[in-house]
């Protein structure tokens, strides 16, 4: 979807706050929210892409202003409502008022190391040989659909060169809809001067793009 999250190349956000103190968490509630998200049981179908799509649908004003981990928790709240696990009233009160059941059981403290170690891989066996090779000229599609996609708007309709053929990976546009489908993934390089002509840019921008985002050029 063409949402507020698609920030690459947008203007008007000012300088980067480079003076931030280098700590893991900036407050107790941030640490707690992070720990809750990592520790909580997830329902089947709450893929990373579905989570991302849920975050993309946060009200634009909230997306830009609400703290990041606060948004994470709200996404899981919205997923719980969407999956029939909790009502808005339960989330607001913090207490279970209905028979709506969650996906249990809760994971114990020993799960931390195992969960990290077994981070879900997204690579899949090759289904069809990749259509492009390193060095191929490609052009990104200019589509915009209302669902989740990892083809940012700033790169659509532009020509680039394949630098790496990465293997076959779960396709996010489908994964966000609960459908698993895998495609060849490429790292494609674009000249910034083509993306934003006349600004004197001399750098390359490299993105990881799935085969169905690309046409031969």
């Amino acid at each position: 979807m063409d949402g507020i999250h698609d920030l690459g190349g947008r203007q008007g956000f000012g300088k980067v706050d480079t003076g931030e103190k280098e700590v893991a968490f900036h407050s107790d509630w941030e640490a707690r929210a992070y720990g809750i998200v990592r520790a909580m049981s997830k329902a089947p179908g709450w893929s990373l892409d579905k989570f991302r799509f849920t975050r993309e649908q946060i009200d634009p004003a909230d997306y830009l202003t609400r703290p990041y981990y606060d948004q994470w928790l709200q996404c899981y709240a919205a997923l719980m409502v969407g999956s029939g696990i909790a009502s808005v009233a339960e989330i607001a009160s913090g207490h279970s008022q209905s028979g709506l059941a969650g996906p249990g059981p809760a994971r114990g403290p020993d799960s931390v190391f195992e969960t990290q170690k077994s981070a879900a891989p997204f690579e899949r066996p090759q289904i069809t040989p990749p259509a492009f090779n390193a060095g191929s000229s490609v052009q990104t599609k200019s589509f915009a659909h209302g669902g989740h996609t990892r083809l940012p708007s700033y790169i659509r309709g532009h020509k680039g060169e394949v630098r790496h053929v990465r293997g076959t990976f779960v396709f996010p546009d489908d994964s966000a809809r609960g459908i698993e489908h895998a495609e060849p993934l490429y790292t494609v390089a674009f000249n910034a001067d083509d993306l934003w002509p006349g600004e004197g840019a001399s750098h390359l921008v490299l993105l990881d793009l799935w085969e169905s985002y690309l046409d031969p050029a």
Binding site: F25, A31, R32, Y34, G35, I36, R38, A39, M40, S41, I85, A86, S96, L100, A101, G102, P103, G104, P105, A106, R107, G108, P109, S111, V112
Partner: peptide
Amino acid sequence: KGMLDPETVDAWV
């Protein structure tokens, strides 16, 4: 809801 053990949250933090 039986979806979270607070000690696991402590362990992640």
